[in-house]
Design a protein around this nucleic acid. Structure first.
Lengths: 179, 179
DNA sequence: TCTTGACTTCAAGTTCACTTGAACTTGTAT
DNA sequence: ATACAAGTTCAAGTGAACTTGAAGTCAAGA
């Protein structure tokens, strides 16, 4: 009893739509065997993979990133607890980073913008993440953090986006320079 | 000396591309006067609004939400420190919520998925946020959290997406039920 | 006068993570 | 035999947040 599951079974159990499952397969995130009819048949362990995908999206990874992570799993055998635990650890670190950034942002919010001193040259915020990696259009949100210097312009002196990118901290109180 | 600024001045100082500034204006997030030539002229306090928009995006609000928040600002006078402080306070609360959710997710990650017990009916995760609000296609990310039950399917019994939605906590250790 | 550069509008393109629809085949129940 | 659900592929649509490109206007300098 290998007990392979149909796509609608998997969909019901995981809560992920069939169309999404096909999409994930197309993207190489999950795999299926085929019945003689051409219909998909999934081994049970695919549920774990799907759970991980759903989970990863909630913590803010893109499907491409999820694919990279899942690519580190063994392909010759069914991944076991320690395989998954390894990924979990890595993701935990990312969640920690994001939490830290949000805490910094909150600090800037109440302590800097909130107080009225958004002088852009006096008041500085957030974190030093690797920005300026992507190009082109699109939304680009990662963990609620834009993937690229939000509508980036300018390559001269200091401005808000650059400060958000470089992760400076608010300096002392403030002096209400700009409006 | 009212000192109105051109769009490229604003772009340089804020780090936001001119095209994005026009887009924000079209969306009603910022406003401009026009010079005789038809060119945009911005009063200085628009920089503060832009900073807020950039900031809000980093904490994960959509432009529509930003618009609602900015809509609460006084329109008859230039918003002052206390006006901004009020918004800041509200946003702080949202940031706190998101931090709390990420902490829950991290707990589920190491304690639940990581340990190997993703049995879907034994192991449950995350938070009780208002899901199932949007319909249709698209990415839908809010704070790195999907705006809708990630590719939602199923309306029957328990599944992962529903649990992520209902915010149950992992039960004790685990019993490795599903693969 | 001519060019250059900064600006304008408007339409269409881009990414991501899917969904939706059309057209067709298979499996199961009556 | 016939209906109907459930599966298949493939192309095109969707929303967010912009960008890019085309085509034109306007002001200043050589």
């Amino acid at each position: 009893m290998d007990s392979l599951l149909t796509i609608s079974e998997i969909s019901r159990r995981s809560g992920v739509a069939s169309s999404a499952l096909r999409f994930y397969e197309e993207r190489g995130l999950i795999h299926s065997q085929r019945a003689g009819s051409g219909h998909r048949r999934y081994p049970r362990d695919v549920l774990r993979r799907i759970a991980f995908i759903v989970f990863a999206q909630r913590i803010g990874l893109t499907l491409e990133e999820v694919g990279e992570e899942l690519g580190r799993l063994p392909t010759r055998r069914v991944p076991d607890g320690s395989d998954w635990a390894e990924i979990s650890t890595r993701w935990s670190l990312r969640v920690d980073e994001r939490i830290a950034e949000l805490q910094r942002l909150r600090g800037g919010l109440t302590g800097c913008i909130g107080c009225g001193c958004l002088s852009l040259s006096k008041c500085e915020l957030v974190n030093p993440n690797d920005r300026a990696r992507l190009k082109g259009a699109g939304p680009y949100v990662w963990n609620g953090e834009p993937r690229r210097p939000v509508a980036a312009a300018a390559t001269g002196s200091e401005n808000l986006v650059q400060m958000l990118a470089q992760g400076k901290q608010p300096q002392k109180a403030c002096g209400k320079t700009d409006a």
